[in-house]
Design a protein around this nucleic acid. Structure first.
Length: 845
RNA sequence: GGGCGGUUAGCUCAGUGGAAGAGCACUGCGCUUACAACGCAGGGGUCGGCGGUUCGAACCCGUCACCGCCCACCA
């Protein structure tokens, strides 16, 4: 070992290679379930790059995993890549400047066709998917390298991607099971819709963002005379108005209930109904029901049981008025049509301006528009507010499963427990079933076809499913059983479902993607349910929720016994680090600058579930610890002589303290408290071992005292293992110092107190430390060096302590460079009184 | 609006009924044959406020304030 830290990269590379080549972290498929610990690793989204939060939370997983491995468990620690989905599509569009046009034919060599400079090139669905595959493979390689540098003890033979064949097979098969059990339904209904991505989205992908809006007061007429004002932020939905509602107790509007209102501009008679969901405090207390402004509108629309008048098209523009036989149920259809024509084709924002102008011109607005700030629903990856659009989508019903889902959550142990509450809150707050179909391309195809009736219409009730043996299938490319490709799209033939699953519908199955489900029953029984699901808290409502859901629906199981939640990495201003804020710390930078062990030390310092401010000081501390471990090891391993029985009172006392530390640290690991385990280990290492014992034992150790040598070697051996889950590189390096054949510390057994003599601490070590500290303090105050001789050391104290001191006095004297001692027992005071007289010979400057 | 966390030294954080802690930063001393990318010693806090329980409260209870996160039907 050299002392230059610049050799860290070589040390890391050496052991990284060794671990891979010798299969240190390989899962042993022959060992029984009872000896196995299974990690359901979060597959990171493969788009762009890994960030510091990944390093943080993946290290937490690895800490637990390494500890479990050292307790003798057979660890199954796979790695998945979540490449399936929208983020990859978006990257491919940007990188290659293409867009997917499913109507185009496949082109074998796309480069021949490569588009004109600067122009977006339309490509077939298959070509598009090939480009996606290409992009993710490059990223997966980079991710793997980073994770290996971080020393994740993953079994790299066990990897998968959420778009690979195995994942598509599991995803489709599991869906077909749900379909068979009636737990997947095709519905033609209003669904939350992103107008830019032009896809349905699920509740879990929706977030509220505060946005400025304008409240317009609009005058409605009443059939038979009269009028009233409604307030709305969405006047462009006026042509979609199908009703008006107020609270039944609201005296202002009680007389209107049961009558018809007449909408301005469009003259549509619409019913005025009473509903307790109407809030008298908001706006004017009476509001219009439109198809569709929000989820409440969908509810009311169902109650009213009238045809929808959808005005928002899938691309976010205003549709022509095409509902019903007559374009307008209106007292003045011509005027209504004229007004609507002015809106048709406009974007939502343009339509809003336009209709406000028309309302103003018609004198149908009242007062000044009022600015308000209110929450608006967005797709989490989207830029424009979500709309409700009627479309045909696949749903997995969850609204009627809330109780079971909460019960399942309670069978799982959450670390820390408060996140179980967050999961339960999410389940209780569900307000719609889980929409799993997406109008995208790079995903797992929905494995169904629909019959085409003789009249050429698609019969969505006649669903054709593939044989299990043919999975995975692409219904866009393959024909259903009993049909041939030339019947595609023809009367009496079939059409493939054009959609793909939401990426969560596949990630929900990670525990069974890796387990061999359902065909390899032997493997599955050994790997499922899994032991640990680690993830950060923002995806409790997505990944954790969907995984629990799918396990419940598939076979009533829980997917894991424990969930470990990591916090976020915040910048010093306590904001979440993110690219857009420009405050990111790149993982590769800190790994290179401080070394992997130091980065892991920083992660390990944070408890589960706690958001942590990024602090380079902790990284420096970690690096300092690594250096210290190497230096202390060099001293200990450099002593010459044969170790023997531990019998010197100082050694016995010191070893007895180490026994307590081993127990305490073990208990902390068992409690999922890696931060506490680190802190306990580190303070023993730093205070007991290096600051004091290494100094006190030096004289005897240099003289080859068997008791001291044995104490030193066994302590080092144990403390290396206590540090091993956190600092895999430096512990491996020291562990193998002097070995001809490397033998990994990471497959060694976790230390137990049985390895040390069964001794009690009589306190002599701490007495020695107390006296040594007094000597050091005196020298420090006298501004002399630590080796300056002490002429006389006078100590009085209770006889018990004095006895202890006498037993270890040789070490104290040698360490303090003491020439004369005067030790007196006295029962006058309970504490030792230490008087240090330095030699008169002046220190020479 | 509802829920969950948090508030301890200048900074980052431990500590959950029994004499206020660590690391960093700061001050002083010291190149000591493991370590100057270091060591030794030291200064620094009425534990967010106010009530209460208790022999005793940073810790338990109540209440308020502030910070953060999650959720909520966008009129």
């Amino acid at each position: 070992m050299t002392k230059k830290p610049s050799d860290l990269p070589e040390i890391e590379a050496k052991w990284r290679r060794f671990w891979l080549e010798s299969g240190t972290y390989r899962y042993d498929a022959t060992r029984p379930r009872s000896e196995t610990f299974v990690v359901d690793t979060p597959p990171p989204t493969v788009s762009g790059s890994l960030h510091i939060g990944h390093v943080f939370s993946f290290t937490h997983t690895d800490l637990i995993t390494r500890y479990k491995r050292m307790t003798g468990l057979n660890v199954f620690y796979p790695m998945g890549w979540d490449d399936n989905g929208l983020p990859t599509e978006r990257r491919v569009q940007n990188v290659f400047n293409v867009r997917c046009d499913p109507s185009l034919p496949y082109v074998a060599d796309l480069s021949l066709e490569w588009g004109r400079e600067g122009e977006t090139m339309p490509v077939s669905r298959t070509n598009f998917i090939e480009l996606c595959d290409q992009v993710v493979q490059e990223d997966e390689k980079k991710f793997q390298e980073l994770f290996q540098q971080l020393a994740l003890s993953v079994d790299w033979n066990e990897t998968y991607a959420t778009i690979d064949e195995r994942s598509r097979y599991v995803s489709q098969l599991s869906f077909l099971h749900l379909l068979e059990k009636g737990l997947a339904e095709l519905r033609d209904a209003p669904t939350m819709w992103d107008v830019d991505f032009q896809t349905a989205v699920a509740q879990a992908e929706v977030e509220d963002r505060d946005r400025d809006g304008t409240f317009y007061k609009i005058r409605f007429g009443v059939e038979g005379g009269g009028d009233f004002l409604i307030a709305t932020t969405r006047p462009e939905l006026l042509p979609a108005c199908i009703g008006v509602t107020a609270h039944p107790d609201d005296k202002r509007y009680r007389d209107l209930i049961g009558k018809n209102a007449i909408t301005p501009l469009f003259g549509a008679p619409v019913p005025i109904i009473a509903d307790e969901a109407a809030d008298p405090e908001k706006g004017t207390g009476i509001l219009m029901i439109c198809t569709f402004g929000d989820a409440q509108d969908v509810e009311w629309w169902r109650q009213l049981a009238v045809p929808a008048r959808e005005v928002i098209a899938r691309d976010g523009t205003i549709k022509p008025a095409t509902w019903g036989d007559e374009p307008w149920a209106s007292i003045d259809p011509g005027t209504a049509q004229t007004h609507h024509d002015k809106l048709t084709g406009l974007s939502i924002n343009q339509a809003r301006k336009s209709i406000v102008q028309m309302l103003d011109d018609a004198g149908a607005t009242e007062g000044e528009p009022e600015k308000i700030r209110r929450p608006v629903k967005f797709f989490e990856k989207g830029d424009r507010p979500l709309e409700f659009v009627v479309s045909r989508q696949w749903f997995i019903p969850v609204m009627d499963k809330k109780k079971e889902l909460i019960d399942q959550g309670r069978k799982i142990t959450w670390h820390p427990d408060m996140f179980r509450k967050r999961y339960e809150d999410w389940v209780e707050g569900l307000n719609q079933d889980w929409c799993v179909s997406r109008q995208r391309y790079f995903g797992v195809p929905i494995p169904v076809w629909y019959e085409i009736a003789a009249d050429g219409t698609i019969d969505y009730d006649s669903i054709l499913v593939p044989a299990k043996e043919s999975l995975p299938v692409d219904p866009f490319e393959q024909a259903p059983p009993g049909y041939t490709e030339d019947q595609r799209g023809k009367p009496g033939g079939f059409t493939g479902d054009p959609d793909v699953f939401d990426t969560w519908a596949t990630s929900a199955l990670t525990p069974i993607i890796t387990s061999g489900w359902p065909d390899d029953t032997e493997r599955h029984d050994r790997l499922y349910p899994t032991s640990l699901r680690p993830n950060a808290h923002e995806i409790i409502r997505t990944w954790d929720f969907v995984t629990i859901t799918r396990s419940l629906l598939e076979d009533g199981t829980i997917p894991w016994t424990d969930v470990a939640i990591s916090g976020w990495v915040l910048d010093p201003d306590r904001k979440k680090m993110s690219k857009s804020k420009g405050n990111v710390v790149l993982p590769t930078d800190i790994l290179d600058e401080f070394g992997s062990d130091a980065v892991r030390y920083w992660s390990a310092s944070a408890r589960l579930g706690v958001d942590t401010a990024f602090d380079a000081g902790v990284l420096r501390e970690g690096k300092r610890l690594v250096t210290k471990i190497r230096n202390a090891s060099r001293l200990i391993l450099g002593y010459e002589g044969e170790p023997g029985e531990i019998q010197h009172p100082l050694d016995v006392s010191f070893v007895a303290r180490l026994r307590r530390v081993v127990d305490e640290v073990t208990e902390q690991w068992q409690d999922w408290n890696h931060a506490g385990a680190l802190s306990t280990t580190e303070s023993w290492f730093w205070n007991d071992l290096t600051d004091n014992y290494l100094e006190l034992s030096k004289a005897r150790a240099y003289a080859g005292d068997p008791s001291a040598l044995s104490t030193l070697l066994r302590s080092l051996n144990i403390v290396l293992r206590l540090f091993a889950p956190i600092l895999p590189y430096v512990t491996e390096e020291v562990w193998n110092t002097g070995r001809d054949e490397p033998m990994s510390i990471h497959t060694s057994r976790w230390p137990t107190i049985d390895e040390l003599p069964d001794v009690e601490d009589d306190g002599s070590f701490m007495v020695a430390v107390e006296v040594l500290s007094a000597i050091r303090r005196t020298k420090s105050e006298a501004k002399v060096s630590i080796k300056f001789p002490v002429d006389r050391l006078s100590i009085t104290g209770p006889s018990g302590k004095i006895e202890l001191l006498r037993s270890v006095l040789d070490d104290v004297v040698a360490t303090g460079n003491v020439e004369n001692t005067e030790i007196v027992g006295s029962e006058d005071n309970e504490d030792l009184s230490v008087d240090v007289t330095l030699s008169s010979g002046e220190k020479t400057a």
